[in-house]
Design a protein around this nucleic acid. Structure first.
Ligand code: FES
Ligand code: FES
Lengths: 143, 143
DNA sequence: AATAAAATATGATAAAAATCATATTCAAGA
DNA sequence: TCTTGAATATGATTTTTATCATATTTTATT
């Protein structure tokens, strides 16, 4: 469903959402440990996210990664799309060329509603929405 | 979610469900083409399914693969478990060690219900159930 | 300006998944 | 019983994903 890389990226972004802002940037080495992902690995993922403007960064002393207000309003799906590409999640469960309602494969009718639900949630929930649940104590970090 | 191999295996099993029985066995070469999977690849998967008694086979002239009445009552999940192993589908969406309700990760509450729904369907739907929908014209083959 | 501290770009290596290839074994029919 | 046609066992190759490593560029501080 989600690749390892996507999962790691989500963890990192949520960590930044809780622990950074324009004034308090966080270095890779201080991200990799709490989220339990190798530094060189998460560094590469964060760089990709910066390039697509999902997160922010500055280099040099006092530099690091952080989320600004705009970043916080990105959806979880945006993160996944940057890391895994757009089509991974939409493919047919039986590897038909295209998954559609008109000529559904035998698993489509059974599984598609739940999958759509997952996709819609990933699309609609923003970083901000998600960390709100953490702050309310309904979900937990660190990971 | 499902590996390529699992998808291929499901396709092959459904094909057999519709086109074989104890009296009419089907050879790999006559399976691989209609389901659009390379022969050597699907052969290996079918062999794994036979070993776990999800499907049946006999060798030699007039041999081939087929489903008997017992085979038809296996769930789709049984196929997936043989090919992908048991735990792939149950892992946390954010790569926590274990996914649980007591200390859910931030994505758990959002996505877990739909995922459970998918898993329950895969567990409860049998091969026979699924091809019934095909015969009724509610779902389509070939793939 | 020089230095140092950070991200960035780039690419190498390792591990896993997907795919391909073939010698061996078993079963049917001549 | 010999031959032939099928699955089976085994493993090699290729591709993708995951992981690691490092030289370069940018920025703050002295
Ligand atoms: S057609 Fe197969 S999942 Fe939609
Ligand atoms: S704890 Fe992460 S999906 Fe259940």
């Amino acid at each position: 469903m989600l690749s390892n890389s996507s999962k790691y990226a989500i963890k990192a972004v949520l960590f930044l959402a809780l622990n950074s802002n324009e004034k308090n940037k966080v270095m890779v080495k201080d991200i990799s440990q709490p989220i339990n992902v190798p530094q060189a690995y998460i560094a590469k993922l964060l760089q990709a996210l910066v390039k697509e403007k999902i997160i922010s960064s500055t280099r040099g002393p006092k530099g690091g990664f952080y989320l600004d207000e705009i970043n916080l309003n990105h959806s979880i799906m945006n993160i996944v799309n940057v890391i895994d590409g757009e089509k991974k999640l939409n493919s047919c469960m039986m590897s038909l060329k295209k998954c559609n309602e008109e000529k559904p494969c035998p698993l489509h009718n059974i599984l598609s509603p739940s999958r759509s639900n997952i996709l819609n949630n990933l699309k609609s929930k923003t970083i901000k929405d998600v960390i709100k649940e953490v702050k309310l104590g309904n979900a937990f970090l660190p990971l």
